[in-house]
Amino acid sequence: MRAFDYHRPATLKEALSLLRKNQDARPLAGGQSLIPALKLRLAGPPALVDLGAIEELRGIRIDSGTLAIGALTRHSEVASSRDVAMSIPALARLADGIGDRQVRNLGTLGGALANNDPAADYPAAVLGLGATITTNKRAIAADKFFTGLYETALRPGEIITSVAFPLPKRAAYVKFRNPASRFAIVGVFVSEGAGTVRVAVTGAANCAFRARAMEKKLASGFTPEAIARIKVPPDGLNSDLHASAEYRAHLITVIAQRAVAAALAGK
């Protein structure tokens, strides 16, 4: 790890002021991606602004048909929350499958979204539920948030404060895991809400994306069979040691069908 200055503000306001003053500083949330990157010297910011002490960024609440989760809420808190289990059980199960237990005890929703790892789970849920990401400056629709490999619509000095998930009628997330990292090779989040169906795919491309052809088919019949014949083109999909683009394309259809089946079964 290279040397850095460390700040631990107690309020959001203080954090934003520190980030304004230190243009190259990195916000530190749970650190479960950032700290390994620092250790391997893949990243070396001159300063870290630790958001861990900012209580106002934590918490889970349901109001007016949405589930709002504070950006600093840890994966294990989402996984074990009664409110999440009652409103969007698929989200609780997704959170319970991120990384491993120890990672879930530190990793946060906001950190995962801001990092936008191409194989992360939360982007699939945010996109698959049509959530709204609130920052200190504005509200960003999920469809506008994930812009590329580790890239988001966030601007310098902008911090995610919370995420609002509309409550679906049913939803599910199924992940086919990389045998080494256990990140998603392909993860598919499906939801059926008031008049809308969403299918979001993670792990397969440079960032999470919606499978619109599948959404269209599922809108006229929310069954696994409805999408069984969809052939996803491999163009633009990731190809690596663990899975070729062709294999990932195939898996998207298989895993999406399983997600639909799971949503129907309430699993």
Binding site: A180, S181, H242
Partner: peptide, 11 residues
């Protein structure tokens, strides 16, 4: 080496 960490070498 492509399998240089536990992210790529499957234990």
């Amino acid at each position: 080496l492509l399998t240089g960490t536990y992210m790529d070498y499957a234990m």
